[in-house]
Design a protein around this nucleic acid. Structure first.
Lengths: 163, 163
DNA sequence: TATTGTTATACTCTATAACTATA
DNA sequence: TATAGTTATAGAGTATAACAATA
């Protein structure tokens, strides 16, 4: 598993990119963390390009998706679901509310908290966005192949349980 | 692939975390980008905790690993290999050089460029670091199982080819 | 002219402390 | 006393422009 001893290893040419630069990286590509980071950056880059017309960042998309699926959740609840600190969530949601895509409504039960909803405009906007996101997703599925696409998501799900 | 219509779905309990929060996320967990991001954050968190005694960030570790495997590379070459802009690489490497772990040496062939090397202290330091990193890596392999650990790295390698 | 390393700078993301209004 | 939302702020990470030295 990524090598044990301190002696110099001959980097085994794994089934990886043939960009011609792997030999210089040493055993870095054998670490899951490194590969996860590089893969995530690549996928996010494609995601952002796919949504260039919409000017929507991945985090913003995730917020819209959650409050579409679960309207009425409190602000901190949405933040926690997405692993965003509630303090940083404020300006993030401000940007969506400022664009008229989502809105805060006072909660009836607890007057401290805000319930979050999509606006009608936000719902229509998200419908268009999702068409592009699904195209992006299809591109990735084709990149790795349908079987590995399913397998990848299954294994990634196992990794979240750590935290 | 990730749901098509706008109607509320009953999120199928996939083979994922049973944190009791999945139903509220909608179809977000069906997007590879979202899962990659969450998994990467989880793994990096464990990585950083594993290296708390060493005070070494993932990016710093990757730099040390590369110049251990390929001593003498020029600064911009290392930056490019890791997907770091050469302008941001300067301070990153300054921190390692300031700690006496690595050093710049003038290149004989091109007097504009610096060749990068580990110091003796850096080599010893990296040996200790790698023991902790390998323990971290083993923890992840056990988390997902040995077969899926291999499979995961294979599929992630396919994703890098996009860029 | 082009490239290497560098500085300055700005913008995003993330993390912590403290405040307010409610509970 | 504790919690939800908020503000202020500081630190990373990342991006672009411009410069000196060298090719």
């Amino acid at each position: 598993m990524a090598g044990k001893s301190g002696r110099p290893r001959q980097p085994v040419p794994t089934a990886k990119a043939a960009s011609g630069s792997e030999e210089k990286l040493g055993d870095l590509p054998n670490y899951v963390g490194y590969m996860l980071r590089r893969a995530q950056l690549t996928v996010f880059q494609d995601f952002i390009q796919s949504l260039a017309d919409f000017d929507l960042r991945p985090a913003q998309f995730s917020v819209l998706s959650v409050i579409e699926a679960s309207p009425g959740l409190r602000q901190t609840e949405v933040a926690n679901l997405l692993g965003i600190q509630r303090t940083n969530f404020v300006t993030l949601f401000d940007s969506l509310e400022g664009r008229g895509l989502a809105e805060r409504k006072p909660s009836k039960e607890d007057r401290r908290s805000h319930s979050l909803y999509l606006t009608d405009a936000g719902r229509a906007y998200l419908r268009d966005v999702k068409a592009s996101v699904d195209a992006h997703e299809t591109r990735i599925a084709q990149q790795v192949g349908q079987d590995d696409y399913i397998t990848l998501k299954r294994i990634l799900g196992k990794l979240l349980v750590i935290c």
